[in-house]
Nucleic acid binder design. Structure first.
Length: 258
DNA sequence: CCAGACGTTGTT
DNA sequence: GTCTGG
DNA sequence: CCAGACGTTGTT
DNA sequence: GTCTGG
């Protein structure tokens, strides 16, 4: 799955990479090596302005954790950080967003925790990994977004709209499966246009864009436990564990190597 | 008909 | 908002 | 996802 | 043990 990630690419660079036509520089967030659910994140999406024929590609800041438009409160649905690719087109909470509000979430990589049973102890050990593109490029995660109106605020209050997002997940590819059974889906540049086009609403066609990556496209590197605490946030979270650090605490011998 | 859910993951 | 369960 | 809390009353 | 907050 995907429950924590790093996002440090400058918005100006994201604008270049994704062919963004519209970005409001006041919508800027600090680089983060520890983005958690309910945090803000950059998203690339397309909206068609009233009276215009074509959608405009934008870079926006959304809150991670999708809140369906019909939710009574924004907390009730904050667990919706992931959406299963195999059912996303039919789930009441996601299908409208899937039909017309798809986005890309550009990230450097995400964290995955391997659960390692410790003989004789109830609590297993949790070994975090940082998963990123082997070629070092930005990962364009497949996402959905949704608008939620806060009725406790005045009708003309711009802050009365909450825009949230979720990440589409699938079965882990074979190389990652030993760490974790699920993983987020990402798109290759050739699929960006079709995925973002709000004019495309055929679920089967859209689902065909969600394909597993080639084996080896992603790499997983074991990192320190500090990432577990969201108060920790620095490039040091990405530093690979040394062999000595991995052996120290590692019950039952070595961890999976890449 | 109304009431209540609407999600994913991991672990047992 | 819309579907499911009772 | 992990870390950290885990409560009620009365008053503003 | 389980829920909430970030």
């Amino acid at each position: 799955m995907c429950g924590r990630f790093a996002s440090t690419t400058k918005p100006e660079d994201l604008v270049e990479l994704f062919g963004v036509e519209q970005w409001d520089p006041t919508e800027t967030i600090a680089p983060s090596w520890n983005v958690a659910p309910t945090d803000s994140a950059y998203a690339v999406l397309e909206r068609t302005p009233k009276g215009l024929p074509d959608p405009v590609r934008q870079l926006r800041v959304l809150r991670w954790g999708l809140v369906p438009a019909w939710s009574k409160s924004p907390e009730s649905a904050v667990k919706m950080i992931n959406a299963r690719a195999d059912t996303v087109h039919e789930k009441p909470s996601y299908r409208q967003a899937f039909a017309s509000r798809r986005c890309l979430l550009p990230i450097d990589g995400y964290y995955e925790w391997e659960t390692i049973p410790v003989p004789g102890r109830a609590k297993p050990r949790k070994q975090p990994y940082f998963v990123s593109r082997t070629d070092g490029g930005v990962l364009a995660l497949a996402g959905l977004y949704e608008f939620w109106r806060d009725r406790t605020r005045p009708a003309d209050d711009a802050l009365g709209w909450l825009v949230t997002c979720t990440i589409v997940t699938t079965e882990a590819e074979p190389l990652l499966a030993p760490i974790h059974e699920r993983m987020p889906l990402f798109l290759d540049p050739g699929a960006y246009d079709a995925w973002l086009d709000p004019g495309r609403t055929d679920p089967d066609e859209l689902r065909s864009l969600l394909v597993a990556p080639a084996p080896g496209a992603l790499r997983a590197v074991p990192v320190g436990a500090a990432v577990g605490n969201i108060r920790n946030n620095s490039p040091d979270l990405l530093r690979p564990l040394t062999d000595a650090e991995r052996n120290f605490g590692g019950a039952g011998g070595g961890t999976t190597l890449f």
